[in-house]
Amino acid sequence: MTAAATTTAANAAAANADVVLDLRGVGFAYGAVTVIDGLDLEVRRGELVVCVGPSGCGKTTLLGLLGGHLAPTRGTLIRAGASRTIYQDGGLFPWLTVRENVALGLPRGLPPDDARRKVDDWLDLTHLTDFSGHYPHQLSGGMRQRVELGRALAAETDVLLMDEPFSALDYQTRMRMRRELASTLVARQRTVVFVTHDIEEAVMLGDRIIVLGARPTRVRRELHLPTARPRQPADPGVAEAEQTIMEELGLTA
């Protein structure tokens, strides 16, 4: 990142300490193909923003931009602090055990005793204590995603980016993981941008839901869900929100 960009970030943070992610007219193109076209988005500290949209609409590209792995081809993106990304599958290092993977997430330069204690805490919080010596390929898909979550949380960075983290899981495990994510975020608050194609997931987890249109991606609709997460299908407002999203995505007859 250039010095100019860093300065801008510092000014923005001073202007509004509450805004963790600020996108202004952000666009991204792979060669001639525009994937994201003029996206404006503000994410506040502690918010869980879910971006939902059709497959291939550039959700993963958006997370690449938010995480700093891709540079926007136009517009400005400001992120306060470092971020960690949780991937759908295969983001763990298979040559490291569960414990080693989580330890890798810790802030660097901790004294060994502190590091050990913190890893124990994260393993406990993600219910992985009994599997700390296992390698990722010996775990179920749900456990692997819990390790990913533990490693990302261990960083103690504010921003968590989640790229369809539960999509590769079976239905029941996915439900359980949503609940666990919600309760973990109560215990350890983070700012989360969560990308999914699953409307139900969006409505159960999001404080705010951004409905993205087909490529090139723009914000089609923003929904606020003020009730506590995770929500159940029968909770007030949930069915209506789901209906609205379906309409926006053109999924209703």
């Binding site: 991937y87 890798l104 660097r108």
Partner: peptide
């Protein structure tokens, strides 16, 4: 080597 490992490495600094 899967690209996702390098993204994780970037996150890890």
């Amino acid at each position: 080597v899967p690209r996702v490992y390098y993204r994780v490495a970037e996150d890890l600094g």
